[in-house]
Design a protein around this nucleic acid. Structure first.
Length: 778
DNA sequence: GATTGTGAGGTTTTT
DNA sequence: CCTCACAATC
């Protein structure tokens, strides 16, 4: 394939010509000025980045500590460091700066943040903490949380921050939002706390405003910046990069606009698409040869992504063998689907595939439970990535809150979390008064506590004055206890400190006293936390660094879902988002249905997001090396209701000869299956996305019949008739129907019952479950 | 002041 | 289906 790129011989010893193809070598050999690498799925992107870094160090003699590589997850950072260790030796690799935007920023802010008035002991507030801050802001402003849902307020604030707009630059019709934003920021600052966006925003301020020369100092740190997954950077991150490389412009960005899937998090695909505009002299390299997947998988993926609008032209190809057809399996419901998934996994294992080479993907976490249950029943080892995280469990959050408020007494959110945990008689009324007192004095809650606990009756008098007479003793003893513990921070190993905290605060005693299965589990989790702290200390010792409590807390705050992924011999369950950057021998992509993928939450309109969903599907497909099995279910119980879904529109875009259309044995025999066939809700559901070519190109597939399955001779992509009405009702989601008593309404979902039934939303009357025969079309 | 129960509301994807 | 806020009760 002609690539239009002059091949450079690698200028560097350890890498032989054979190890890199010509565009790869071109990118690796580039050593000065801006470089943009479009890296198609499976095109050896990580190889290029690591080799380029190795080349800079070994050949261009750049000291490793002057290179900053930004990755998307901590796990990716660790892997990159490992690979570089193999290329350069651990000694040199350890000196490199490799990390996420957030982790790197946190690290740099600890050293330079004081120029902006950010103390070294700042804490990072997670979403829960942030919500607590918004709630407090709402209360301070006397606003109704029904009118200003904290979640939405936060989303609004974060959107502003991602674009680097403060409350004063905010444009919003509602002045209260601005006030909330301002109060939120003030509270964070008062608590010596930052949110995720602040980590980036504060770095940009340091770099651009150069307080106390901190920006210049930062800029002098690095000679080269490399960014992976550049398509998923947001405006603030891009500005961070531009500010950093202002003087030398040695910025290498690597990414694939086809794999941009984090728009909802502020990512702007225009950063990569328009990179040439900001850096007109950028050298552009396209990596287009896929080494990962079979030709069928690559062509199927292309079928989906080629219908994307505005993509940078790319020509992904592979020299790999055609491989097996992709199974497109119709299933009856999510249980039937899960059963098929497990059967496929068992079959693969029987053929000798290592479970760690198998992954099950889904669009939303809520889909994981059924699959998990069936896997457990079948004794298949598995791990779930993401979902409810270890660190989000109440007991873990409590323990961490103790540790955080010990390192940073100003952190009110943490103090409020632990002041009455375990119960020590400091109730809502007392807290309300304490908060009021602290607000009036404009001090943190810890400081307020200190003032109320002052000796010789001064504090007691004050406490009485603000209505805290009876609680004063309890507050004082809590304060004393914390002061005692705080004296040990830094003097003891973090893991020992945790043990002491849990003992002295009475948390362990309280849990032991509970003596329930649940409290047992909590105790075990706390033991787990302690061992994770211990691991951290061991790691730090191995790296020759001090094991600071702050360091551990920071790591916990910035931990990502995939970071927790173990390399054990287990099947991996994760969302498609979590799968970015990974690859597996066998991928089972589940829930490929209308409304699930592309996912439409509650609002039926808006094909605005379809572009991103399309890219998400592309990412999912291209994770598979040899075998891809895609399933969809006729009905799916999710979020407490039953949804009806025809196959995802994306399936019809995969070329006919890349797929084998199948159905599980349970599916067509089911009542629901028959019902859907007969009523042709299936056909109705797929009409809007049907491409003219899709029908034409889908010659009847002749798939092999798998054991335990019956091939159903039914081309479900063929347009099986235009009429969707049988018995007078088109029973698909969104259909308008009329009921004799309730009037006109809209079908919300199909319900599994003895006969066809649906949930219908009637204006002003809410949703009702109604048998289909009582309805007629509107 | 703590504990328990009830109801309502909201449900994507995550550093 | 889950979480969270609040009310009722001890």
């Amino acid at each position: 394939m002609a690539l239009g790129v002059t091949p450079h011989a690698p200028v560097w010893g350890p890498v032989s010509d054979a190890e890199l193809n010509s565009p790869q070598a071109d990118a690796v050999a580039h050593t000065s000025g801006p470089l943009l690498v479009f890296a198609g799925a499976g095109s050896g992107k990580t190889r290029v980045i690591t080799y380029r870094i190795a080349n800079l160090v070994a050949c261009a003699r750049v000291p490793p500590h002057r290179i900053l590589a930004v990755t998307f997850t901590n796990k990716a950072a660790g892997e990159m460091r490992d690979r570089l260790g193999r290329l350069l030796g651990d000694e040199l690799a350890r000196e490199l700066w490799v990390g996420t935007f957030h982790a790197t920023s946190a690290k740099l802010l600890r050293r330079h943040g004081e120029a902006l008035g950010l103390p070294k002991n700042f804490v990072i507030y997670d979403t829960d903490d942030q919500k607590a801050v918004v709630n407090r802001a709402l209360r301070a402003l006397d606003l109704d949380e029904k009118r200003y849902p904290p979640r939405q307020c936060l989303a609004r604030i974060h959107k502003e921050k991602q674009e680097l707009r403060g409350p004063d630059e905010m444009e919003d019709g509602d002045p209260w939002i601005v006030k909330i934003y301002r109060a939120y920021d003030e509270q964070l600052r008062a608590a010596n706390a930052v949110d995720f966006e602040d980590l980036i925003g504060l770095m940009v301020r340091l770099l651009e405003e150069n307080p106390a020369g901190a920006g210049d100092a930062l800029r002098r740190r690095f000679d080269y910046l490399l960014v992976d997954e550049f398509q998923d950077t947001n405006a603030a991150q891009y500005r961070f990069l531009k500010a950093f490389v202002r003087d030398h412009r040695n910025l290498c960005v690597v990414g694939d606009d086809d794999q941009s899937i984090y728009r909802w998090r502020g990512a702007d695909v225009r950063n990569i698409r328009g990179f040439k505009h900001d850096f007109p002299d950028a050298h552009v390299v396209k990596l287009e040869q896929n080494y990962r997947s079979t030709a069928r998988i690559v062509r199927a993926a292309l079928g989906v992504i080629e219908r994307s609008r505005e993509r940078v032209p790319k020509d992904l190809w592979t020299a790999n063998a055609a491989g097996a057809p992709i199974d497109l399996v119709a299933t009856r419901d999510e249980r039937d689907e899960a059963a098929h998934v497990v059967a496929t996994i068992q079959e693969a294992r029987a053929r000798g595939v290592d479970p760690k080479e198998i992954a099950v993907f889904y669009r939303v976490h809520a889909q994981s439970r059924v699959i998990e249950e069936v896997l457990r029943a079948a004794n298949v080892p598995y791990q779930i990535v993401g979902g409810t995280k270890f660190y989000e469990r109440a007991e873990i959050k409590n323990a961490l809150a103790y540790l955080r408020v010990l390192t940073n007494p100003a952190s009110d959110v943490d103090l409020l979390r632990v002041i009455n945990t375990p119960a020590r008689g400091i109730g809502a009324t007392s807290l309300e008064r304490l908060v009021a007192f602290a607000d009036a004095e404009r001090v943190s809650l810890s400081t307020a506590l200190g003032q109320l606990a002052e000796p010789r009756g001064v504090g007691a008098a004050r406490a009485k004055a603000v209505g805290l007479g009876t609680a004063a003793g309890k507050l004082a003893s809590f304060h004393e206890m914390m002061a005692g513990l705080r004296a040990k921070v830094g003097a003891e190993r973090p893991s020992d400190l945790l043990g002491e905290v849990l003992e002295r605060t009475g948390y362990l005693i309280a849990l032991r006293a509970e003596n329930t299965a649940e409290s047992e589990a909590r105790l075990e989790n706390l033991a787990e936390l302690k061992s994770s702290l211990f691991d951290y200390e061991q790691e730090a010792a191995a790296a020759g660094e001090p094991a600071s409590l702050e360091g551990y807390l920071e790591r916990v705050s910035l931990q990502s879902d995939v970071d927790g992924m173990k390399d054990a011999s287990r099947v991996t369950l994760m969302t498609v988002h979590g799968a970015k950057g990974l690859e597996f021998e066998l991928v089972l992509l589940t829930g490929m249905e209308q409304d699930m993928f592309p996912y439409r939450g509650m609002n039926p309109s808006g094909d605005h997001e379809v572009e991103e969903e399309r890219r998400l599907a592309y990412v999912a497909i291209t994770r598979a090396r040899s075998r891809l099995v895609i399933t969809h279910a006729d009905t799916r119980q999710i979020f407490g209701t039953t949804r009806l879904g025809g196959p995802s529109p994306f399936l019809a875009e995969m070329p006919a000869d890349t797929v084998a259309v199948k159905a599980t044995a349970g599916r067509s025999a089911s009542a629901v299956g028959r019902f859907i066939d007969r009523d042709d809700a299936y056909g109705q559901a797929r009409r809007p996305w049907q491409h003219p070519q899709a029908t034409a190109r889908h010659a009847p597939a002749a798939p092999a019949v798998e054991p335990g399955e019956r091939y159903v001779d039914r081309e479900f992509f063929a347009d099986s008739g235009s009429g969707a009405e049988e018995g007078g009702v088109g029973l698909h989601r969104g259909a308008r129907v009329v009921h004799a008593q309730f009037g006109e309404g809209e079908v919300r979902s199909v319900v599994q019952a003895s006969e066809p039934a649906v949930v219908v939303a009637f204006p002003g009357r809410g949703e009702k479950k109604i048998l289909a025969r009582f309805l007629r079309p509107a």
